[in-house]
Simulated scan of single mutants.
Amino acid sequence: MMNKELMTAKILEAKVTKGMTWEAIAEAVDMSPVFTTSACLGMNSMAEDKAFALCETLGLDKQVAEALQSCPKKAWDGAVPQDPLIYRLYEIVGVYGDTLKEIIHEKFGDGIMSAIDFSMEVDKEENPKGDRVVVTMNGKFLPYKAW
């Protein structure tokens, strides 16, 4: 079976060859751009019909579709990333993580925001002072249980 790294490389090559955006690929498989991209980068899996639709869209073979369906190992390098955009997201969590935790606990109680029952959107907001990146995260609240 093809591993996720090779799968991602094949998908990225096909994406460039076809001149497609993540938005267009996601639309072709009727999924969100964020989830579609995440699955293509190996951090989520796709249902069989979506995996085969994506491969048909990009002209990829059955091995890529099978790799898209396999359960990922959700792990990443523990080092602070060097990519400026990803680093800034770490910075946001570093600066505002405790604040978000306090506010979530105050509004909901002791628990977490699910990253499983979750959705995220990335939008562009035009602004005369400079375009804005709008990231909306929507996760189910999961209270901790006492026993």
Rank of each mutant, 00 (worst) to 15 (best):
M1P: 03
M1V: 11
N3E: 11
M7F: 05
M7D: 03
K15Q: 15
K15S: 02
V16A: 14
T17S: 08
K18T: 04
T21E: 11
W22S: 02
W22F: 14
E23G: 00
E23T: 07
I25Q: 05
I25K: 02
E27Q: 12
E27C: 00
E27H: 05
V29I: 15
V29R: 04
D30G: 02
P33N: 04
F35R: 09
M43R: 13
N44G: 00
M46T: 01
A47S: 13
A51E: 10
A51P: 03
F52Y: 15
A53Y: 01
E56P: 00
T57P: 02
G59V: 06
G59A: 10
L60H: 07
D61T: 02
K62D: 15
V64N: 10
A67L: 04
C71N: 08
P72K: 09
P72D: 10
P72F: 09
K73C: 06
A75T: 12
W76D: 09
D77I: 07
G78K: 07
V80G: 00
Q82G: 14
P84M: 13
R88Y: 11
R88D: 10
E91N: 01
E91I: 02
Y96S: 06
G97E: 06
G97F: 03
I103D: 04
I104E: 09
H105N: 13
F108G: 00
F108V: 01
G109I: 11
D110N: 11
D110E: 14
I116H: 04
F118I: 08
E121D: 15
D123H: 07
K124P: 00
K124S: 10
E125V: 15
E126N: 12
N127M: 02
K129S: 12
K129F: 14
G130P: 03
G130T: 10
D131K: 12
V133D: 04
M137N: 13
M137L: 13
G139W: 06
L142T: 02
P143Y: 04
P143V: 01
A146I: 02
A146E: 15
